[in-house]
Design a protein around this nucleic acid. Structure first.
Lengths: 140, 140
DNA sequence: CTGGATCCTGTGGGATACTG
DNA sequence: CAGTATCCCACAGGATCCAG
């Protein structure tokens, strides 16, 4: 296991007081709602490589519609994770780059990616095993 | 910034080759599709505190429907992140606990939670600022 | 208590066409 | 190029009822 528990402020969130009625969100939700949708993460990943223009992003991120790219970068901008710069040229030119806050998220995304690479085979195997043992109904 | 880039295997995923057609998924997707939905994470967080029964989980995780709890915990089981144990009592009793793989994910979730706590105020401020400067249309 | 089966709605998100 | 505006639908997910 390569993802060890270092480098994270000790005990800032003890993971305990989440989900309760009196503690509706312990802050994870905010991030997760953003990290949750696939596009945001992929945009962040792409921007981790440096500033990108709109089309660059769209071409780099396979499968994203221009509508979703727009929405995604707008939300990231709104959250202060991405900086949007418009150059008043003709035709218009816009570039996006991570803010410092946004850049700090790439570390986590990277950790996620690492974890994923490490465990994807195991997960795939677990799924096959499970599906073999539960042939009847599709868990999905 | 407390989330530093230590403790993660160096360069396992360089974050570069993602999203391209020829590289449809670099493994992040698998995890993200699981981590992505709020319920999975909250279940993992709750189980990080030790084994829980079905009702315990449902009560601990405010707002989850029993249908979604079932689905969520089934998927986590299928992925080998959660172990489901049925005790043939009457009435039935089932407990869920994290597997080792699942437990290793809690570190990441914790890092996410820490990051979130650290930046939630900044993000909230950024949103207000953005919304003030863009009064017309709702980004959402 | 632990779910399975149904029904039903909201909305995330794709496709397409138009503008500056 | 960098978007905005519509139309539209598949599906996530809530509510409910039933069963072992």
């Amino acid at each position: 296991m390569s993802v060890t528990h270092t480098g994270v402020t000790a005990g800032a969130a003890e993971l305990e007081p989440c989900g309760q009625p009196d503690h509706p969100d312990c802050g994870i939700r905010d991030v997760l709602d953003r990290v949750g949708d696939k596009w945001s993460v992929l945009v962040i990943v792409e921007l981790a490589g440096g500033p990108r223009r709109f089309r660059q992003l769209q071409r780099a991120i396979d499968g994203i519609s221009q509508r979703m790219l727009t929405l995604t970068v707008r939300r990231l901008e709104r959250d202060g994770l991405v900086l949007r710069t418009v150059y008043p040229t003709v035709p218009a030119q816009v570039d996006y780059r991570l803010t410092e806050t946004g850049a700090s998220l790439t570390h986590l995304v990277k950790a996620l990616a690492d974890w994923s690479l490490e465990h994807r085979d195991g997960i795939a195997r677990a799924r096959r095993t499970y599906d073999d043992q539960h042939p009847e109904h599709e868990i999905r």
